[in-house]
Design a protein around this nucleic acid. Structure first.
Lengths: 237, 237
DNA sequence: GACATTTTCTGACGCTCCGTCAATAATCAG
DNA sequence: CTGATTATTGACGGAGCGTCAGAAAATGTC
């Protein structure tokens, strides 16, 4: 623990300022619109100073993505604590996913940006491993719930690791939100309520694996509303 | 039907030449590496000529994406004909998805590129609707299989449209392949065989919806291998 | 074939953006 | 106060996109 001089504190603070300024630009106008020149002008600093903080534009995006991934992990962790029943915990995480992608759409969008090869590759080794760690920890939370379910006898894994099991739900939720974000014409194709349909698919998948207790579609909507409300109030506080 | 002059045929042909030249660049070195200047040099034409064919860089990507979407649709259509049993037809389409994303990874990558807001927005109205039509038709093929399944009594839709039903499988397969492409470290997270696990998830989802006949994990691997081989040889011919 | 008109082709140009770096200013240590 | 260290600046090189006036080729007309 070192005591920072005024100047040093100023620099640390400025890093936050850069990110705070970059995020809305990125969200409102996209990656192309985020220009280092304009960012510097808005900051009222010279471009060179920006480059003292981040070696390139991509690193700024990566730094923002880390903030987003952290938020999601926290939401997952809270969701996983909302019940003592394994299946409800998993469903709560599903709700957290939905909340994250809808109410925190900015964060989801930045995460998606990072899945672009160019941005990923230009990010520093350090931030790359940091991001991997974030992902690993989020996976750990969900896989933990699955392992608990197996331990308590609520679920039997059919010849795959807990992580492979989780991967299915990850693909389902990530895929649906990515498609929703990039295919605005889903309703024209006949997918009127993609969110609702994905919830059902997630539950049916759990049912398919025999995750106890089974949930019928009759209760599902009512069930969902109660759970979503609880998570809403609890996770986003 | 008009008869084209030599010159006109030359122009049509050149359009193909541009696409044929752009595709490998895009795949090997990514979107950033695709430069209009370099493309023109390689074509041995001036840049202006390129711009006579495509009003901007994004349109080239969109044109390539249309080719890719067409290929996928064709693969879906063939897969849907490989059996008379509804469930096998759906599984065959799943295999086609897997094949498309793995053996035709170039095409899948270009499709993903198009899901980038910047590229999509700069594409012409005409190509945008063309792309939507492609998507609609692919969805139609799969939704058709689902409707046949319902008609034959193999499946009951639980309060959702056939398209919403399909959306789940779309999200599952798209999501998994997108994650695999952008998270090369999946095995480090514990997801050793993502492809195999996604197959299982797809089947379990069908089982969960009670799609007849149910498939147990005991047969699944053997079943899969037989089906995959049949599709491999038939779809990629 | 000669000339006019239309179409196609060309590449220099303006613009924007990224990332660098030598020069300048601010801070610090003794 | 002064020399050394650290931080800041913005002009610059380089690359890419898209344009457009003028050159070249093709086509039409007599």
């Amino acid at each position: 623990m070192q005591i920072l001089s005024r100047k040093q504190r100023e620099i640390v603070q400025r890093e936050q300022q850069i990110l705070a300024l970059a995020r809305p630009i990125l969200l409102r106008d996209g990656y192309q619109a985020l220009s280092m020149d304009r960012l510097a002008t808005q900051m009222e600093y010279a471009k060179g100073t920006l480059y003292n903080h981040f070696p390139n534009k991509e690193e700024i995006v990566a730094a923002l993505a880390i903030e987003s991934l952290e938020l999601r992990r926290k939401m997952f962790e809270r969701a996983a604590l909302l019940s003592s029943q394994s299946r409800e915990r998993m469903m709560a995480i599903g709700c957290a996913c939905e909340l994250y992608a809808t109410s925190c759409a900015e964060h989801f969008a930045i995460e998606q940006l990072l899945r672009n090869a160019i941005i990923w590759e230009k990010a520093s080794e350090k931030r790359q491993t940091l991001i991997r760690t974030c992902e690993l920890r989020a996976m750990g939370v969900v896989a933990g719930v699955v392992r608990d379910a197996v331990a308590s006898g609520d679920l039997q894994l059919p010849g795959m690791t807990a992580e492979e099991f989780v991967f299915g739900f990850w693909a389902l939720t990530y895929g649906s939100h990515a498609l929703m974000a990039s295919s605005p014409s889903l309703p024209d194709i006949g997918v009127n309520d993609p969110l609702r349909s994905i919830r059902y698919h997630g539950w049916t998948l759990m049912n398919g694996y025999g995750w106890h207790p089974q949930i019928t579609f009759a209760d599902s909507d009512r069930y969902m509303n109660g759970l979503v409300e609880r998570i809403m109030t609890d996770v986003t506080s």
